[in-house]
């Protein structure tokens, strides 16, 4: 058989159908059936009527929201200083901020756990605070990088024009720099918010608690309740889709996550 360019795409096309689309179809099937294969809305109703699962949903939303805000408030000044500095080798500084991401995150959280234990004595006193610190520690570079990229590209002459037109530095920042860096902020927010909602390992390692969406899947999984777990996975997927649609992060997500790592 002659190999043309198009036929090269067949294996990956099949792979996408078999291992990206089919798993989602199967969890959708499991989510709306019971253990014996009969159609049911029980899992759906069960999720929304159980105060435990609803509490978890709320808790992980609040946790993700707070983590995202904290990351934004730390990352923006850092990205701003890095991007606006006149230093020739600022790419090295950026590299220093991004480098820890190459270290396995469970090892980094282990390090953080040791330090927090040293400071607080017992981690159980401040579970929420510790989780926010842990997630910020884990996800901060994902917020710094996209904001840095937009600020770096910002046209300097716009700021000069603003000051020529009588804006002081605060006004210039609020009306020129901040609006122009919105794409970076949106991208950073989507890179932090979704993982913060689902990455239960940080929470799990810092404090043995299960109040987060991701760990709910885990708990159903260890209880061999595939149907309940599938429903939660499906709901998470819906939340992710809505969020991705709202932020329009779809196109940039791959690039940013990739760019952050390389």
């Amino acid at each position: 058989m002659k190999i043309s360019r198009k036929t090269l795409g067949i294996p990956y096309g099949l792979f996408l159908v078999l291992f990206v689309i089919a798993p989602l179809v199967v969890i959708a099937y499991f989510a709306f059936t019971d253990g014996t294969g009969h159609l049911t809305l029980g899992n759906f109703v069960g999720f929304f009527s159980d105060p435990n699962t609803m509490g978890t949903l709320l808790y992980s939303l609040v946790l993700a929201f707070v983590t995202t805000l904290v990351c934004l408030f730390i990352a923006y000044p850092v990205a701003y200083v890095l991007a606006r500095s006149k230093w020739k080798r600022k790419s090295i500084l950026l590299l220093i901020f991004v480098m820890p991401m190459w270290i396995n995150f469970t090892l980094r959280i282990t390090a953080l756990k040791e330090i927090l234990t040293l400071i607080e004595g017992n981690l159980a006193f401040h579970p929420f605070l510790n989780t926010v610190i842990g997630m910020t520690y884990d996800f901060l570079p994902f917020m710094i990088l996209p904001i840095y990229n937009t600020l770096e590209r910002l046209d300097e002459s716009l700021l000069e024009a603003a000051s020529d037109l009588g804006a002081d530095s605060v006004q210039a920042f609020l009306r020129v720099t901040l609006p122009l860096s919105t794409p970076g902020i949106v991208s950073g927010v989507s890179m932090v918010f979704l993982p913060a909602m689902t990455n239960y390992v940080v929470l799990d390692m810092l404090y043995n608690s299960t109040y987060i969406m991701g760990s709910l899947i885990g708990s159903y999984f260890s209880a061999y309740d595939w149907n309940g777990g599938s429903m939660i996975a499906l709901l998470l997927l819906v939340i992710i889709c809505i969020f991705t649609f709202l932020t329009g992060a779809d196109e940039s997500a791959g690039k940013e996550r990739g760019g952050a790592l390389l």
Binding site: F19, V20, P23, P195, S230, A233, L237
Partner: peptide, 28 residues
Amino acid sequence: SARTVNQIPVVNADVVTGFSICILLVVF
């Protein structure tokens, strides 16, 4: 369509990716 489907594991939570593959291959 390849581009769109390719984007699913990128934006999806890794928990969901791992869980759904396990359900398909191991359970189903």
